[in-house]
C-alpha cells in the first residue's frame, strides 16, 4: 500500500462524517500492525486479537476526539494498550490455563518455529520505540519510506536509516539463531 498519512487523515475525516467504507480502509490498513504491536507486548495472540478488535471499535465511536487525524495508527495503539492493561488483571488466571493448553496442542512444526518466533516477538518489544514503529509500519501496515516518515516526523531518508538500525538491532538480539 502506498497511501500515506495525508490519505489517512482524509480517511479519518471521512469516517468522522459517517463514511463506514473509509473506516474499513483504515482498519484493513492498520489492523495487522496494531495486532503485532499488542502481541509484542502481551505475547498472547488471542488477547491481542481481542484488544485490537475492541480498540478499533472504541476508535470508531470516539473518532471525534482524535486531535491529529494523521496519527490515527498510534492513537489506536494507545487505546489498545489501555484496554489491554485494564483486562490484564481479570484474565491473568485464565491465561495460565490457556498457556498450558496451547503447549499441549502445539504441533511438531510449531515446536520447531515457536522458539524463534517468540524470540523475534520479544526482540521487537525491546527495540527503541521509533525502531519498532518503523519496522511494524513497514512489514505489517505495508507502508513505505515517505508515509512512515510522515508518521514518525522524519524525512524519507531518515526512515531508511532507522530501518537499517532497527534491523541491525534486531539481528543482534537474534544472534543465537545465526548460522555457525
Amino acid at each position: 500500500m502506498t497511501d500515506g498519512p495525508e490519505d489517512t487523515q482524509a480517511l479519518v475525516l471521512r469516517a468522522r462524517s459517517g463514511d463506514k467504507l473509509a473506516f474499513e480502509l483504515l482498519v484493513s490498513r492498520y489492523e495487522h500492525g496494531v495486532y503485532i504491536h499488542m502481541l509484542s507486548k502481551t505475547g498472547d495472540p488471542e488477547r491481542s486479537q481481542e484488544v485490537t478488535q475492541d480498540a478499533f471499535i472504541t476508535a470508531y465511536t470516539t473518532l471525534a476526539r482524535l486531535e491529529k487525524p494523521a496519527s490515527f495508527r498510534s492513537w489506536v495503539i494507545g487505546i489498545a494498550l489501555n484496554l489491554s492493561r485494564r483486562r490484564k488483571k481479570e484474565v491473568a488466571n485464565l491465561d495460565l490455563l490457556e498457556a498450558s493448553a496451547e503447549k499441549r496442542e502445539s504441533g511438531a512444526l510449531a515446536a520447531i518455529t515457536n522458539e524463534k518466533v517468540d524470540a523475534v516477538r520479544r526482540a521487537i518489544a525491546e527495540l527503541p520505540e521509533n525502531y519498532r514503529d518503523a519496522l511494524l509500519m513497514h512489514y505489517f501496515d505495508k507502508q513505505r519510506g515517505k508515509a512512515i516518515g510522515q508518521e514518525l516526523g522524519v524525512s524519507e531518508g531518515a526512515v531508511h536509516m532507522i530501518l537499517l538500525r532497527a534491523r541491525k538491532a534486531l539481528a543482534e538480539k537474534l544472534q543465537a539463531f545465526a548460522p555457525e
Binding site: 503485532i36 524463534k116 524470540a119 541491525k168 539481528a171 539463531f177
Partner: peptide, 18 residues
Amino acid sequence: DLMRAHQGVAMLASAHPL
C-alpha cells in the same frame, strides 16, 4: 545479519496472521 532480522519479522508475520 540484516537478512536474519528480515526473515525473523517475516516469520513472526507468518506465525501470527490475522
